[in-house]
Design a binder for these strands. Structure first.
Lengths: 151, 151
DNA sequence: TTCCGTGCAAAATCTTTGCAGATAC
DNA sequence: GTATCTGCAAAGATTTTGCACGGAA
């Protein structure tokens, strides 16, 4: 369930000449404790940490999110809200995709094993080292279709 | 090849109480003339129009791109460059997906018929009206893997 | 004639960056 | 001890918005 321990995070960081800081560890823990299907924006994370009394500056949050996404630990999602969201990048069978209503931003998660296979095959064919693979479906949800407001 | 004519754009706009303006028509044409695999940011489009002497304000460009994406005419891409890109939303067999290097942003397009089918099926199952369906694969390209700079 | 759309300028949002002090290794 | 990391404040980039005028239906 837990993709990364603090120890393996430290190992991966050190391997690249970087350091495990309390901030990085805290942020990893927050994401690991997050229920399936929740995802946080930088601001969400900032506020959650403030509430816990473990405040971390927004700069560090942005830097850490980007770092962990580039390491393949987090995946970056564009859920149509004008800012990025992040969630733990989990392997099969937890790996999933998103169906998003472009009007109200309702988001539905769904799984599909064959997409991950296609992603892995495509990356391999091009010699890419795979980090993440996400199918994003945009549409209009049933509720918004019934609404009288066009677009 | 051409998914929308000016006439069908006008019809679709009018249907919703909106209007076909020269700006909207011009922007549609730009995208229709774009070679397969090219995609434009708002700024790209703005500059291209300036060069042609058909200048359109950035506000209108942003408003039109959003409008056309919500109508399903354009698809909005996040290619990791800090701003959105847009391209014509083409049906099978031109429909395609993107493999992106998170370090240098090199982007490779690829096709896969079964993903579109999965997207359509998933949208239908949830009662969504499908607008777009894109598999985005993030990874590190061969060249960047060889580079000595970590992340 | 009506009301939608455009352009301009200003504002709002989100994200990045420079720098000095702190700290992991 | 040294290079990396953090927090702060400021800057940068992208996108949105209010308003008056112009134009499509």
């Amino acid at each position: 369930m837990t993709a990364y321990s603090s120890a393996s995070l430290k190992a991966e960081l050190n391997e690249r000449g970087w350091r495990l800081t309390p901030q990085r560890e805290t942020i990893l823990h927050i994401f690991q404790e997050l229920p399936q299907g929740e995802h946080l924006s930088a601001e969400d994370l900032y506020q959650r940490l403030e509430e816990r009394g473990e405040g971390i500056s927004l700069s560090t949050i942005y830097r850490t999110l980007k770092l962990m996404a580039r390491m393949g630990i987090l995946r970056e999602l564009d859920l149509g809200e004008g800012h990025k969201h992040y969630e733990i990048n989990q392997p099969y069978p937890h790996h999933h995709h998103h169906l998003i209503c472009i009007r109200c931003n309702e988001t539905i998660e769904f799984k599909n094993e064959s997409i991950l296979k296609t992603g892995a095959k495509t990356a391999q064919k091009e010699g890419y080292h795979l980090l993440d693979c996400q199918l994003t479906i945009h549409g209009v949800c049933p509720k918004c279709q019934r609404s009288l407001i066009p677009v």
